[in-house]
Every structure is written in structure tokens, then in C-alpha cells.
Design a protein around this nucleic acid. Structure first.
Lengths: 225, 225, 225, 225
DNA sequence: GATGAATGAGGCTTCATTCAT
DNA sequence: AATGAATGAAGCCTCATTCAT
């Protein structure tokens, strides 16, 4: 089955009966595109309306406020991005089912990267606004401190015991690993604006190699001249 | 000599022996605080004026434009942050004078972190606007592609030959290391808004350890039960 | 067909079957009156809004810019004033169809004076801004250098050959005659602010007599005592 | 003796004692140049101050108001332009001393044109502001209705009796002749911005020829083919 | 007398939001 | 349900004028 964009989910959740909710979807699509391209603050509701092919008033009929329109795409995204991750950790990417942390990490990154690529525009919006909005940060934090945290924590402990991971406090790892991942995604998708195809395997391997081994040469000595 | 905040420099450069230009400093301070807190786009000039205790017109007397006010803090910051870094690489933190890349990296990070901590708010502003402004990205890029790039490049090559660093293409390293550093600074100072004192040694060591060795346990096997 | 003020035309062109765009007309009327009275630069958009009984924002909804509002009345006026004149020279006031230059001139003046009187206020605005705005001068020049110029030129040559007009270079005539006409219109409608009805026949005859014969007594000698 | 610009007069009248009044002159000169070039409304007092090499406050010390600065150049100009003309009519250009109206008119035009050329910039300012300012128009009117009017009136009557001038009501002549003259000066010096040297004789002759004889061929018939 | 820093009223413009249709 | 005309608060900026030095 084809990967279904979060967009469909956002819409369909709100309107099972789905009467004339086509406009609502058009608005959301237009808003996502414009917010991602120009930023929330630099996009006017009239632009959104024009781009969506609806009247400006219609936006407010459905979303009440420009800000609520923003939240209507960000909140589901955050919920899917993180707690789904927690779920995935237990279902799709269950660390128990991996023999090495590296494999687990690879599965996890691939899983999440797929989601981010599928919803690249919303990810852009989130990152841009994240720095400005305490409420976004709260939303993210609220969604983290649950199963996800514990799952990840457990995985770390397990692989530390197995000797694969160095004796670095979980707390530190939990800060460094996400930082690297988010920094990586942000650099690629937002700063460098790369056109991402799915042919990332190489890139992901480098990233994972770095997280696992750093940059030190663990194999031997200097090159022989 | 005591570390002097960039703020003093920005101001004092403009007004050697300038009698009453106290207001200019008040404006700059207020603007930095507000921009860092709420973002450039969400801060009005009337707010800045009120917060600085001056008339709104006074802002424009000194800075001409709200945008020039922004640049008056960002441009010196970028110039100090990066090309000084290039200079530092050759003078203060010359890689030739370090026996290991790790030591060089430690010196470099400590040097830059000090500067960022001293100008934490301007760093916040830069990061926030960076995602929105092509001109900022250009400004940063323009200040990078000189000695700094080559210096860093040479350092990497040297330590790869010495066998300390793994055979990862310089290009990749040049992307991953800054990403990790910037991600780290950003997470600490902006997302987590830590109240940083300079007593970071521990934190820096962990960060460097991670960059060098990743998270893998290179010493031995699993903990003995 | 009744003479229709340019105002109606400007408006109606923009809104055939336009339900409620009454406000647009109100704005235009208010702006014309105020610009004519106080000049473009001394009239604020808030004044216009108040005078038109609309919110200030409504002006910008329709005209985008204060300057576009000005052009929305001036440009059609210039186009109607001059190239229509060129057309009139060939159609309504075709010099070929007049036996004397005097008759042609009379027809021409009557035709143009009617138009100016009907749009007295816009004429005032144009004259006032003409001295300040290179773009207005260009606009006028651009509309002149076509058929009109040639038509007028041909008429002059023809009547010079017929012996009616003195051997004054066309170039000189083309400068003096418009100068006199514009000076005359300006003096009457702007400096003296006469309340002009259309009953000008006498005045026009004097003006034409002056242009044709100057002030010299060509008939005979001094009055006999 | 060289013709003395009105500027000197304006200044010297105000400060016979002339202490430090150099600045006042500098201000006036700068203001005249700038007002003529860009218009009163588009010239800021700070520009004037900079161009005059004085502090902005100094302008207000001497002239109290930007508007008073404007009047300080316009009022003397009007007084010199018109009532002096009345005086000149009786002294320098006394119509009694001319045998023909044409000669009188030539002397009058040359006399006034010299004055206007000498004070071209103030003339520009006057014309531009004239259309905007009821007070300017009043000032002009107030200075006309005295000796000047009567002098000119008498001259016209005299030459009408002598048979040189046609039987056109004085009132009409008094309107048409100034209109032509002002229109002519304005067109040359402001609209066309000609660089006027004193070699105008030809031009003045054409103008006078036109005023006297119009454009009709009074000598003979059509050109013989 | 002279300065120029400081002011604040007022100008143009944008845009989220409302509401009659 | 949908529209889009209308609003008016708020933003950035200019500039004549004041006043302490």
C-alpha cells in the first residue's frame, strides 16, 4: 500500500461524513505549501485563499483563526512524529527484535526519515516556527515524555549491557542522538534544501557510522607512505 | 584582558568619544533582548522604543531602518564568529600546534563556545532568522569560504594522514561536524534555554568524545555480569 | 448623446455589473476633489477616507497605493485629452474639412474646452502635478508624439500655403499656440477659479481673435476724433 | 554695474549690521536651490541644513518655520516682480516715452525677463507653489492692484487711441497679455528647462510679433506656386 | 549664538477578522 | 454554506520642531 501522506489523515479525521470538505482540504494544502515556502508570518490569509481557490472568509469558517490553521497541521504532525515513534519502537521497530543497536538505529532512522520526507513541508514549518513558539516546544515536550522516552531508554540500557554501547549516561545519549538526527534532517531538508529522493541509503549509512563510531580511525594506524 | 561582550564592541566602534549616544546603546540592548525573545518579525519598533525608553523616531535616527538595526547586530556577530575563527585557527587555535585532532577540536570548541555564550542572545537571533533569510545565509557563506575553510580542510587532511581520523571524505566531515556543533549549541542555548555558565568542561568533553568516538564501546565487550 | 464626465467612464470601465462598488466611486470622487483643492502631496489618505465615508483600508483595497489612485484619474484623462484630440482632428475636427484655419481652431478649442470643463478638477490636478512629476510629463509626451502631432503639422502647412497663416516656422507655432491655450485654460480654471458654464462663445472668440490677429489694429488708423 | 541678484537684496535688507548673518544667507541660498530643484514639499529642513553647512536648529533660529523660510524668498520676489514693474513703467519703461506699443512692450518684456532670469530659481519656486497656495495668489493680487494696473491701463488706452491697438476691451487685454507672457516664461524656464543665455533677442521678437499680429498672414496672399 | 539629539504627530500600507448577503 | 467587501488596529517610517548644552 502506498504511503499515505499525513495530510489525508488530518483531513479525514476531522470529517468522516465529509460534506463539501473538499474546500477544507484545499485550504490546508495551500497553507502547508505556502507556510513551508515563505514562512507562517510572511503568508497572508488572502494568499492562502487565492491559492486554495476559496474565499478568504471560508478559511475562517473552518479554522477560525490563522493560528488555529497552523496548529491544525502542526499538532497532528507532532503526534505522528513522536508518539507514533514510540509506538513504532514497540511495533515496527521494536528494539527487542534487533540484535545490535546499530541495526535498531538504522531501522529507526529509516522509519522516521520516511515519515519526514513524506511530510517534508510540514517538517519545514515545524522547524521554522519551533524556535519562535514556546507552545510548539511544549507540544513537542508533552508528546515525548511517555512511552517513547521509556522505550528508547530501555533500548539504550539493553545495548549498553550487551557491551555494544559505551558507558555514557542515558540522559546524555538522549540529548546527543536526537540533536544529531534533528540537526541532520534540518540541514538537509531546510538549510540545503536538497531534493531528496529515496536513494538515501549511502547517506544514512554515513550518518549511522558517525553516530556509532565518531570520526576516529579505530582500525589501524596512519596511512603508510 | 577581560572578555568583552560583542555588544560593547558594536557600540564603541560607532561612537568613540560620543557624548550622549547612550540612547543608541539602550536601543541596541532592547532590540537584542526582544529579537532574541520574540523574533525579529514579531517585535515592533514601538515595543523596542518603549523598552529602551526612547521615542520611536530615535530608533530611526540611529539605525535608519528596522532591518538595519537587525544587521547592526548580526553582521558584526557573523564576522566575529566565523572569520575570526579562521584567524583563530591560524593564531590562537592553530591546528599545526596541536598533536591530536581531538585537542585541536577541544580548543576550537572552547574558543567558539565562549564567544557564543558571551553573545547568547545574538546567536539566538541569528539562528532564528537563519531559516527565513537568504541574505543571512549568504552573509554566513561569504564569511566562510576563505582561510577558514582551507585551514579546517588542511587540519583534517593532516590528522587523517597521521592516522587519527578515519578515512571519511573531508566533504562529509565538513558537513557532519558543523552540523553536530551547531545542533548542539542550538539545542542547549535556544531550545533548552539553559542558563549556561562557563563551567562546561564536562559537557564539552562529552560532546568531543561523541564526535571522536561515537557511542560505540571501543574498549572491550559487554559488562561482565 | 449627452456629454458624460470622465469620472463615470473611469468608474464604469472598472465595474460593469459591479454590485456594491459604490465605495470605489466615493473614494475616487473624494480624492479628485481633495487633490484638486489641496494638491496630491498635501492630501492624506485618511482625509480621503474620511471624506469618502469609508475606512482608510478600503482605499488600498481598491487602489493599492495612493499613487495608483492618482494615476487612476490622470492616465485616462491624458489619454482622453490628447490622443482623442488626434482622433478628433481626423474625425470630428478634421482640418481637411475646414476652409480656414480659424474655423478649424475654433472647432478644436471648443471641442477640447468642453472636455476640460467637464473634468475641470482632474485638469487642475494634472496641471498642478505636471510641474513636479517627470512621469506625468512623459505620459503626456508619449501620448502626443503620434498622429496628433502630424495632423496639426499638416494643418499648419496647408493653411500656410493657402496664405491664411504667416510664414512662421511650424516649430514655433507648435510651441506658441499650445502655450497660449494651456496658459489660457490654466488661468481661467485654476488661477481665477472661474465658475465656467458652457456659455463661453464670446470668450472663445476673443481668444481665437487674439491668436489669429494679435492685438494690433489691422483695419485702419487711429480713431477719428 | 553688474545686475545684483535679488538674493543679496533679501539678505541685506534684513541685516544692515550684518553680524554672523553669513549663515542666514547660506541657508537661504541652499533653500532656494533645493526648493527650485525638488519643490518645497519634497525638501526637508535637514537637507537644507546639510546643504547650507549649518545645524538644523539654526534654520529655525533665523526663520522660525519652514514655511516662513519659503515666504522670505517669495514675498520679496513678488514685490520686486510686480510693483517694481509699476515703478518701472513710470521710470525706466515709461510708456509715455515710447512711440509705439510694440516698443513699449519690447522694453517691458526685456526688463522683466532680465529680472526673471536673474532670479530664475525663485521664479520656479513661485510658479510651482502658486498653484497650491491661496496665500501666494493673494500676495500676487495684492501687489498688482495699484499703480501698475493703472499704468498699464493708461498705456493701453493711449495706444488704442493712436490706432495701433485694436478695439479690444482693456480688461480682456489685461488678461490675455499676462497670460501669454507667464505661459511663455513658464514653458521656457520650467517645463522645457532651457538653459537661458541672454541671447534671447530672436525669441523675444517672435513672442512680440505673435502678441502684436497673431499668426495670420497680414501682408499678402498665398504663396505663388 | 549655534548645535544636533530627541521628539512625536502623522503619513502610507498590510492584513487578520467580521458580517451582510 | 460560502462569499468577499469592508474594516481598523497596528506596523514602519519621515520630518518639522524643540531644547538642553
Amino acid at each position: 500500500m502506498l504511503p499515505r501522506s499525513l495530510l489525508d489523515t488530518i483531513i479525514s479525521e476531522k470529517m468522516l461524513a465529509n460534506k463539501g470538505a473538499l474546500k477544507q482540504q484545499k485550504i490546508l494544502e495551500a497553507a502547508i505549501t505556502l507556510f513551508a515556502e515563505k514562512g507562517y508570518g510572511n503568508t497572508s490569509t488572502s494568499e492562502i485563499a487565492k491559492s486554495a481557490g476559496v474565499a478568504e472568509g471560508t478559511i475562517f469558517r473552518y479554522y477560525g483563526t490563522k493560528e488555529k490553521l497552523l496548529f491544525s497541521m502542526i499538532t497532528p504532525f507532532i503526534k505522528k512524529l513522536i508518539p507514533t515513534a514510540a509506538k513504532d519502537l514497540l511495533e515496527e521497530v521494536n528494539p527487542q527484535s534487533f540484535e545490535t543497536f546499530e541495526n535498531f538505529l538504522r531501522a529507526f532512522i529509516n522509519n522516521r526519515m520516511k515519515f519526514v520526507i513524506e511530510n517534508k513541508e510540514i517538517f519545514q514549518i515545524l522547524v521554522k516556527e519551533f524556535l519562535y513558539r514556546e507552545d510548539f516546544r511544549q507540544e513537542v515536550m508533552n508528546n515525548i515524555h511517555t512511552d517513547f522516552f521509556n522505550s528508547f531508554n530501555n533500548a539504550l540500557s539493553k545495548f549498553k549491557e550487551s557491551g555494544e554501547i559505551a558507558c555514557i549516561p542515558n540522559e546524555t545519549l538522549m540529548r546527543i542522538i536526537p540533536t544529531v538526527l534533528i540537526g541532520y534532517f534540518t540541514t538537509r531538508f531546510i538549510v540545503l534544501r536538497e531534493n531528496v529522493d529515496i536513494n538515501n541509503e549511502e547517506e544514512v549509512n554515513i550518518l549511522i557510522g558517525f553516530i556509532m563510531n565518531g570520526i576516529v580511525n579505530h582500525r589501524g594506524q596512519a596511512k603508510q607512505p
